[in-house]
Design a protein around this nucleic acid. Structure first.
Length: 286
DNA sequence: AGAGGGATCTTCT
DNA sequence: GAAGATCCCTCTC
């Protein structure tokens, strides 16, 4: 209890002092357990490390992408790659595999319900692409991105780690008990606060522009099409009546990095059968 | 693999 | 003063 508190405080220092080992040499995305990868696609995806400026400019998504209705944007996020560049040049990358749409106004589960605008949530009302980072349960953060629509935003819930896994693991371990087991790759970013820890998304990112920021940005999927997307009720909003059941959560069917699978939603959409008999490669068909 | 409970504190009422 | 867009650990099956 007290020891844990002290540990968390000291961990903050650890984060500040972390020496991020340049990972340019880690020039191949590692494989998730049980998954198979197309090496050719990997080669395509990592070129930005060697030609950061050109490739970033070509792949980066800007205002026009974020400027679409909330639900459309939440779905469009699936498969895109979130990139976090540290001051030392280390690039942490993860493919978005799970999102939630939080509409403004009528959406009772949204921080902006009823058009409520506070000091905390102003980013939700700023231009599409604006990052909304807020603290939750005292010790965690969640990252959203503003969409088209008054007070609407998309919550990023899970990523498939693509690059910088060792740094992610270090950042995540800094918040856990000493001696705890080593996290698997698929556990690094499978939750909204986990991905904030793993990518070192900080509170100060609130209100910054994902379309133009130099430390964090979004890129199109280098390899093209994504797999099947499941629509399911959102997580952790049970207390908000009918809005709790609306299918405003979106995730890649069968992907191991999704935080919580919803078998009921999958079968309702006739998606469950599609997964049967499929090789594990569907998990990375991206 | 899943259930249950504790931790922890900012934000808003 | 209470709730909360979560995570971690332990216990049980």
């Amino acid at each position: 209890m007290m020891t844990r508190k002290r540990k968390l405080l000291s961990n903050a220092k650890v984060c500040d002092q972390l020496n991020f080992v340049p990972e340019q040499l880690q020039h191949r995305t590692t494989h998730l357990e049980g998954g198979h990868r197309d090496e050719g696609k990997d080669q395509e995806g990592i070129r930005s490390q060697y030609f950061p400026i050109n490739d970033e400019n070509r792949a980066r998504l800007r205002f026009d992408f974020f400027n679409q209705p909330c639900v459309d944007l939440a779905k469009a996020f699936i498969g895109k790659v979130l990139v976090r560049r540290h001051s030392n040049g280390t690039e942490l990358r993860g493919r978005v595999v799970e999102t939630e749409a939080y509409l403004g106004g009528e959406d009772k589960a949204s921080h902006s319900a009823g058009g409520k605008r506070t000091e905390r949530n102003v980013a939700m009302f700023m231009k599409p692409g604006t990052i909304y980072v807020y603290p939750i349960y005292g010790i965690y953060l969640c990252m959203n991105v503003s969409s088209q629509g008054e007070g609407a935003a998309v919550l990023l819930r899970s990523l498939e780690p693509l690059n910088g896994q060792d740094t992610m693991r270090r950042l995540r371990a800094a918040r856990r008990r000493e001696g705890a087991r080593v996290l698997k790759d698929k556990e690094l970013c499978n939750g909204p606060s986990k991905l904030c820890q793993a990518l070192d998304v900080q509170r100060c990112f609130d209100r910054r522009d994902l379309g133009t920021d130099t430390e964090v940005w979004l890129e199109r999927d280098p390899s093209g099409s994504t797999g099947e997307v499941v629509s399911a009720p959102r997580i952790g909003v049970e207390s908000h009546g009918e809005w709790a059941t609306k299918p405003l959560r979106f995730y890649l069917l069968g992907h191991p990095c999704v935080s919580i699978m919803d078998r009921q939603a999958e079968s309702k959409q006739g998606l469950a059968a599609k997964l049967e008999g499929q090789p594990a490669t569907i998990l990375h068909s991206s």
